[in-house]
Amino acid sequence: MYQRPDRREARLRRHVRLRAKVSGTSERPRLSVFRSLHHIYAQIIDDTKGLTLVAASTVDPELRKQCNGNGGNIEAAKAVGAAIAQKALEKGIQKVVFDRGGQIYHGRVKALASSAREGGLEF
Rank of each mutant, 00 (worst) to 15 (best):
V59D: 13
G50V: 04
R19I: 09
I93G: 06
I84M: 06
E75W: 00
A82R: 10
I93A: 01
L89E: 02
E62D: 15
K87S: 08
R28C: 11
S115G: 11
M1S: 15
Q3G: 05
V59K: 12
G107I: 14
Q86M: 11
I45V: 11
S26K: 09
L89F: 04
I104C: 02
N70H: 09
L37W: 03
P29M: 09
G24H: 00
F34M: 11
E9M: 12
K110A: 09
L12C: 01
T48M: 08
H106E: 15
R11T: 14
Y2A: 06
V59Q: 14
Y2P: 10
R17E: 14
K65G: 05
K91S: 13
H38Y: 13
G120R: 02
Y2N: 04
R4Q: 10
G92L: 04
R4A: 06
K95P: 00
I74E: 14
D99I: 08
R30W: 02
R30N: 06
H39Y: 04
A85T: 04
V97T: 05
L31R: 03
E62N: 13
N68S: 14
R11Q: 13
E27K: 09
I104K: 15
H106G: 00
L112E: 08
R17A: 15
G119Q: 05
G119V: 01
H15I: 01
A85H: 07
R17P: 00
G69V: 06
R108P: 03
I74N: 13
F123A: 01
L51M: 12
V109A: 09
G119W: 05
K49P: 00
A116T: 04
L53W: 15
Q43W: 07
G102D: 06
E75V: 12
L53T: 00
P29Q: 06
L51W: 14
N73V: 06
K110L: 08
L112D: 03
A83H: 12
C67D: 14
S23H: 12
V96Q: 02
F123L: 01
Y41H: 09
I74G: 00
N73G: 05
P29A: 02
A113R: 05
V96P: 04
A111D: 05
V22A: 05
